[in-house]
Design a protein around this nucleic acid. Sequence first.
DNA 1: TCCATTGATGCGACCGATCTCGTTGAAACG
DNA 2: CGTTTCAACGAGATCGGTCGCATCAATGGA
Lengths: 360, 360
Amino acid sequence: MGESSTSQNKTVKLADVARAAGVSQGTVSNVFNRPGLVSEQLRERVEEAAKSLGYRGPDPRGRLLRAGRVNAIGVVTVGPLNCFFDDQYTRLFLSGVAKACEARGAGISLVSAVDDEIAAWNIRTALVDGFILNCLNEGNMLVELAEKRGLPFVAVDFPVGPGFDVVRIDDYRGAREAAQHLLDLGHRHFAVFTFETEKEVRVGFVDDVRAERASFEVVRRRLTGYRDAFRAAGLPPQPVFETGSEFDGVCAGVDAVLAANPDTTAFVCTSDRVALHVITYLHSLGRKVPEDFSVIGFDGIEEAANSIPPLTTIYQPAIGKGEAAVELILGDKSDDAGGRVVELPIELVSGASTSSPRKT
Amino acid sequence: MGESSTSQNKTVKLADVARAAGVSQGTVSNVFNRPGLVSEQLRERVEEAAKSLGYRGPDPRGRLLRAGRVNAIGVVTVGPLNCFFDDQYTRLFLSGVAKACEARGAGISLVSAVDDEIAAWNIRTALVDGFILNCLNEGNMLVELAEKRGLPFVAVDFPVGPGFDVVRIDDYRGAREAAQHLLDLGHRHFAVFTFETEKEVRVGFVDDVRAERASFEVVRRRLTGYRDAFRAAGLPPQPVFETGSEFDGVCAGVDAVLAANPDTTAFVCTSDRVALHVITYLHSLGRKVPEDFSVIGFDGIEEAANSIPPLTTIYQPAIGKGEAAVELILGDKSDDAGGRVVELPIELVSGASTSSPRKT
DNA sequence: TCCATTGATGCGACCGATCTCGTTGAAACG
DNA sequence: CGTTTCAACGAGATCGGTCGCATCAATGGA
């Protein structure tokens, strides 16, 4: 005891300040967190001591341990973290998450799940109060892991399961409405374009078997919706092409379809992203939309409204989904938490990318 | 002592498992974190005890306190969290941050700084190992706050300061090259369009005074670059219009410029986002780019390359900036940490949105 | 004058895990 | 057979705060 005040190697902590100021730890804590409870003179003394020791204020780590709550929620996505920023729909969704979190003063942690091992570790150790599970495909263990962690979580666009909350839309109905819209316009020859059906993209035509086994729930529901609409209209099965979400895959799809089915008059896409690629590529081929081909998307991202021509699409409230998910986790965990289902409405938005089929 | 195993109200912790298994806490810890160090039979005994107690594995909170490192870095932005997802350039930057973090197994925390009070609290309490300060405008206290917190941090696109690292590009040179490109094509009548010069957008013409006082360092440097290029070409000062980043503001700008300066042949924009809006609006007015007007941007976002026509712009490595920032924080904090400056290269990318001026 | 009330503080437990030592037992060695 | 060596494990300190409760002085009312 003697070299206590200067040239400390260790970080100075609450207890040091308390000792230096001759007060208890609790009082120092109060000075920083609830200054009103401390008399002015004592407060000044403590603040002075803190400053002279170079104390930076209560370390959040200690507070965390004691408080128990992190005040942040984790957003998990299958795949690399980048997909949070690369995909337009995901961005909208996250924008909603961000808005809701900010309103509640909570933070957001992006947790990656590139592979199973990393996912397991991250979900077990993320410093959060709950998880939003996104981009789920069947068979992955995210839900299991989240359950094991024992924190509240919400699965987005996922089959309802026992013991957890879900946010979703009616993908089946949306897809069916999209197809019906084109059928009503008089189209009879379609090409269905879908993004990844499995975690690994496989660019090429998709047969019924693969379509029904698509591990992404969303894909499966949408493809089924299209199929049922066609079937109800008395049409034979229409070709389905898996393009992925990138431009190249979509180009390959357009080429393949035009070569194999020259009668095609309409492209039905499981996402706006794919639909916009289709329009861009058709344009570069000198084909006009909607004069030569109708194109319909799904999602209702902002870029769709601003494209030339504006895209006809099934709008879904991506931002609202994000907000709803946060609400489920941070909201009053009153009664039936753990089995709630929030299904948000969708809506056909008529753009200028669809019209009656060309006469040939 | 008696009702110890069942119907526990409190959460079961490491110590409980240790007691139940008749081993020390350290051993239980090892079972979960370094199973190799524990003999098989003991490990099984511990695992069984853990399972029967419903122990979910080591709580990250305890680990954090002990370990000291959070293994996550915080990204701070001025303004609402949404801007992380709404702005294309910011997205690219974050994509780089994400990529680098993922490679190092670190997480990302989005911390918001909508107003000064929230910023102060969040920076003081965020559970991170360091900060990336983005979207900085002069006079805000982010840098100060980060310094006070005592964690490593990087300021992006900010004047070099003592005691902290900086990642930047040469905005002045980029702007000057952009203007020079148009001058070389023969343009003599310009309209400079800039996004926000202050935190609050003010749509309208900007005089020299306001331009030089722009609180966003980036804006100031770019505007100066344009001005010097015009001046060096012997031109009088060209009108500068603050449009903000939204479509409406840009439309107002185009209207104002066309009304006030019908001779204008080129739009020089401080961001691609603004430039793309200009093209869209001109198109809707029936004006052609580049036949009637040349438009040049700044940033080199992906949307610029895919626009019709492809945008001529100053490309900056947004993703690289994000990666560099992470590297500065997570990399070896060897020697000169705290004053390093990383300046990344820029490059003029010729699209099809610029050509020689129309003859009138 | 005395008791009840209020406000300011101190005291000690606790949050949950991990790390550093030191101990123990058995195998290995000469 | 005594000693070295090493793996396996236990005990206790530590990480940095915050919370509940006890304490104590000052104030106010009867």
